[in-house]
Design a protein around this nucleic acid. Structure first.
Length: 925
RNA sequence: GCCGGGAUGGCGGAAUGGAAGACGCGGCGGACUCAAAAUCCGCUGGGCGCAAGCCCGUGUGGGUUCGAAUCCCACUCCCGGUACCA
């Protein structure tokens, strides 16, 4: 028997040679250059730009490869696609590297970019590198500065006060992550909460508009989180007065309970605390304020925490009834929320109640609960927040109160109206969201282009850019900008000497507008070229980490709205109109659609199994020898188990009976098979739990090694296949072989000749049916960001094709069509191998320039479907029926089923639920 | 604490009111091989049964429904964010 074509040895799949060859070819051909073409529909796909952390890790691939694949599908669907990349290059880690490794932030950053570029290229993504933008490049940050100036001139940037982490030892401000337990992580010195002058953006002016998501398709959880973050609440501003006549404004959502206010609480940092504090209370107040400075905001907001606070000795007058009430300070009141002061109504507020009970303050109920006895302030055990009728409340006595918020509740409406007509307060809306603090007392960031004149006035620098000097040394103390004479010396617009601002900009500002810089990174007449922007804007689909839900994704929305109002898009709108594109609403939001992936965590790793000899010394075990042995039985030595942790020469070992602490003296024998003697304790492998990858944990998965071993196509396919993308999860190094086998099978299918023996029309039709169903499935899933099921559908097609290659019953036409569909659908996911096989099949132009396959719905329709027959909800039979079967016929078929008969005899048929063609449920009783 | 998300075989996951476990990893059995790897074929949620088949099963406890992994209520644990990590 002559060898069948399938038996001919297929050419070896050499991923390395093939992938490199095609990447070079694509680059030489300019395959991924995106240029404005008003005759074609555009698609701007964007993946969050990476921070220049050093090496790309698997998480970057996880974020970018699917994003790239989807952009490729859009391109095959006929869109002119822009898919750019760049680097978020300013930020704290560069300064940390400067301190720990004595390398300048600029050098560290540019070297990292160089390395990351190379790594990104191996991904085979369709990035248009000619649009690369880097936020730390002067050609970029000149426009960051320029935009700051526009916001300042437009009244959206202002100087204000904020509390910062101040390290008295380092004489600088620390990031929250640098503060551990109230201490500086580097020096261990206590950190103070200090009020400082800072620059802010007035994002709260846009709070209302930011609550409107009606024009964008973003993930629901993000919309909910942003809505809660903004935290709109309705109520009233009411002014209390101190005995000295100073005003204490408060915001309250419950102005109807003003008559129940029995005390006030100010944030310990509140400006009036000093004035209110009596001499005999000063020591206690000062001590409490200092203690508060050591607590984080998260700690302070914990509702369940035991309430603390001190009396200032001062009193305020309740404007509604003229009563004198004591003023306290407590850390549960935050300076940054509302006015930093509250009226306390312990009878009807949970936290106020807890505070009043803890401090023995009076509790006066002003709501008579519906359908219950009146409340008694002395005996209540918890605050009452439900509906009822107002009592002891002067003009609003007898008014109903409900669970509704704001004016919806009659009592709140009545109180607001009464306060208004008596000039004691007015209706107000408060937001939890604060203005955006953009000042950083740091070196490695875009300079804030402002000048301080000798007379104390300020003005923006007109000569941009303000270049960040790169000849300074980062010490970890105060920013070197604050002492650099050459940087500080400036000239104002009148030619007078002035001093430069030394704060730099929050890196979130750099990343709030990068989607615009990508359009024309070399454009020097503005932040972006209106000719490009008019065509490409807005971003059609944005993907990135779910961890950016509130901050980055809110900031970038604000930024776009602000730029719109400042007229930055006016010229772009004019260009749009000249091309017949209506710009209405196109600059209200930066990204029309947004979806977010989860995080890839480090792989869980078991520690070495240790066999330890020695003897017990009370509750610890002192080792004479430690041996690594994978399958050692539990009774091989006194202590046998997995190494969990290694701390200062002692080992934590998980044995069958719990965790044992093992002391390992210097003279103990240590034996690790497969390593060179002498062995040391430090060579033992500890257990690593799944958690975020970091260099210090040693659990970073390096994509370079995976690419070298399996090829970029396999790595891309696997990342899209092995996870629920929106969820993420721990990396598992074992599963990738399955994706590699899939790619190898595709190689086999694409490189071996197919020749049928006896063609079966049914088998051919069945393969065609599956191929066209696969088109439907893959198309739907890729559009819906369900990469894993798209790849699974392709694997299913692969499985069937391998079967039919053996059966040889499929016609050549059906076979060739299936191969072509498989390659075209896989091309966006595995761009290299599909390009190679496409060319081997005799095509001369790139597979990535082909049209996305369209399913023939007639070919894809199944001739029969399975009807599930249930009795009382349990599956008892399955019958093949026509897909268009009606209710009566389905019921008849189900009742006629042989297997069902025994069940029908067991009782009366009560009901039949028919959901043709899939299900009939017979309820018997 | 607050806001958002999650929990399904040994593992990653699929199924968003109608067949639980698609697809893949791993495992088990077999073929090929002197042998191993690779590859190929078969099986693979748990239990009972010679079998036909039956029972149980989606973090926990309750509920709605003819029918619940999916909807509702209460809870447990895990992940992300919490305003200077990005």
């Amino acid at each position: 028997m002559p060898p069948s074509p399938t038996q001919i040895m297929a050419e070896q799949y050499d991923h390395e040679e093939l992938e490199r060859r095609w990447r070079d070819r694509w680059e030489a051909d300019g395959l991924y250059r995106s240029e404005v073409d008003w005759d074609r529909p555009k698609h701007y796909a964007l993946t969050m730009l990476p921070y220049t952390s050093g090496d790309l890790h698997i998480g970057h691939w996880y974020a970018m490869a699917p994003s790239d694949a989807r952009a490729r599908v859009m391109r095959m669907k006929g869109f002119n696609v822009l898919f750019p990349i760049g680097f978020d290059a300013f930020g704290l880690p560069a300064e940390n590297a400067a301190i720990s490794s004595n390398v300048h932030p600029a050098i560290w950053t540019w070297e990292n970019i160089e390395r990351m570029r190379g790594q990104l290229r191996t991904m085979g993504s369709m990035f248009d590198w000619e649009r690369e933008a880097i936020s730390a490049d002067p050609s970029y940050y000149v426009w960051t500065e320029w935009l700051f100036r526009r916001l300042y001139e437009g009244g959206l940037a202002y100087r204000g006060e904020a509390i910062v982490n101040w390290s008295p030892v380092l004489q600088t401000v620390l990031a929250n992550e640098q503060v551990i337990d109230g201490k500086d992580e580097r020096t261990g010195a206590p950190v103070e909460q200090r009020k400082m002058e800072q620059w802010f953006f007035a994002i709260t002016k846009y709070a209302e508009e930011l609550l409107d998501f009606s024009t964008i398709d973003w993930a629901d959880p993000v919309k909910v989180m942003q809505t809660n973050w903004i935290g709109r609440s309705e109520g009233a501003d009411v002014v209390f007065t101190t005995e000295a006549g100073e005003e204490i404004p408060v915001f309250t959502t419950r102005p109807d309970t003003l008559w129940g206010a029995t005390f006030m609480v100010l944030a310990p940092e509140h400006d009036l605390v000093d004035a209110l504090t009596s001499n005999d209370r000063r020591a206690a107040v000062d001590e409490y304020r200092e203690a508060t400075g050591r607590r984080s905001e998260i700690e302070r907001m914990e509702v369940d925490r035991e309430k603390t606070g001190v009396f200032t000795g001062g009193y305020a007058v309740n404007p509604v009834n003229g009563e004198k009430i004591p003023v306290w300070i407590a850390d549960y009141v935050l300076l940054s929320y509302g006015s930093g002061a509250i009226m306390a109504v312990p009878a009807h507020d949970e936290r106020d109640f807890a505070f009043a009970r803890a401090m023995n303050l009076p509790i006066v109920p002003v709501i008579h609960p519906a359908e219950a006895d009146p409340l008694d302030g002395d005996t209540m055990t918890e605050s009452y927040v439900g509906p009822g009728v107002m009592v002891h409340s002067g003009p609003i006595n007898g008014v109903e109160t409900t669970d509704a918020k704001g004016r919806e509740s009659p009592s709140v409406a009545a109180a607001i109206d009464w306060l208004g007509s008596n000039g004691l307060g007015k209706e107000a809306v408060n937001y939890r969201m604060r203005d955006w603090l953009i000042s950083r007392q740091r070196y490695w960031g875009a300079p804030i282009p402002m000048l301080y004149r000798a007379d104390g006035t300020i003005e923006p620098e007109q000569n941009l850019p303000v270049i960040l000097p790169e000849d300074l040394v980062v010490t970890g103390g105060a920013s070197p900008l604050t002492t650099d004479e050459a940087f500080l010396a400036a000239t104002d617009s009148k030619g007078e000497p002035a001093t430069r601002e030394t704060d730099t900009l929050d890196t979130f500002m750099c990343s709030s507008w990068y989607q615009y810089r990508y359009l024309s990174p070399h454009f020097d007449a503005g932040p972006f070229d209106p000719e490009e922007a008019a065509y490409w804007l807005p971003v059609d689909v944005y993907t990135g980490g779910a961890e950016h839900a509130t901050m980055h994704l809110l900031y970038t929305r604000f930024f776009t709205k602000a730029l719109r109002d400042l007229g930055v898009f006016d010229e772009t709108a004019a260009v749009m109109e000249s091309h017949g594109r209506d710009p209405t609403g196109l600059f209200d939001e930066p990204m029309l659609m947004s979806r977010n992936q989860g995080q890839i965590l480090g792989e869980e790793r078991t520690g070495d199994r240790l066999v330890i000899a020695g003897e017990w010394d009370e509750d610890r075990f002192v080792a004479t020898s430690v041996r690594v042995e994978d399958n050692a039985p539990v009774d091989a030595a006194p202590v046998v188990g997995e190494l969990l942790e290694h701390i200062d020469g002692s080992l934590q070992v998980a044995t069958g009976e719990g965790v044992v602490t093992v002391e390992v003296p210097d003279d103990a024998d240590i034996e690790i098979p497969g390593t060179m003697a002498p062995n040391e304790v430090s060579q033992l492998r500890e257990h690593v739990a799944t958690q975020r990858m970091s260099k210090s944990r040693g659990n970073v998965v390096n994509p370079d090694e995976l690419v070298e071993r399996y090829g970029a196509d396999t790595v891309r396919t696997h990342l899209m296949f092995a996870f629920d993308w929106e969820k993420g999860g721990p990396w598992n190094s074992h599963g990738i072989v399955g994706s590699r086998r899939f790619i190898e099978d595709v190689w086999k299918l694409g490189t071996t000749e197919y020749e049928p023996t006896t063609v079966s029309e049914d088998t051919s039709a069945a393969l065609r049916r599956l191929a066209h169903q696969t088109i439907q499935k893959v198309d739907r899933d890729m559009m819906a960001f369900k990469w894993n099921t798209a790849v699974a559908a392709l694997m299913t097609l692969r499985n069937r094709m391998l079967d039919e290659r053996t059966s040889r019953e499929v016609s050549t036409e059906a076979w060739d069509e299936a191969v072509s569909i498989l390659l075209l659908l896989l091309a966006p996911i595995a761009p290299h191998i599909t390009e190679e096989l496409w060319h081997r099949a005799g095509n001369t132009d790139s597979i990535h320039l082909q049209a996305w396959p369209e399913a023939d719905s007639v070919v894809a329709t199944d001739p029969t479907v399975t009807l599930v027959v249930q009795v009382n909800g349990k599956v008892r039979d399955r019958i093949e029926v026509a897909p268009d079967i009606d209710e009566d016929a389905a019921t008849a078929a189900a009742m006629a089923s042989e297997r069902i008969q025994t069940y029908l005899e067991q009782g009366e048929v009560q009901r039949v639920i028919a959901r043709p063609p899939g299900l009939v449920n017979i309820v018997i009783g």
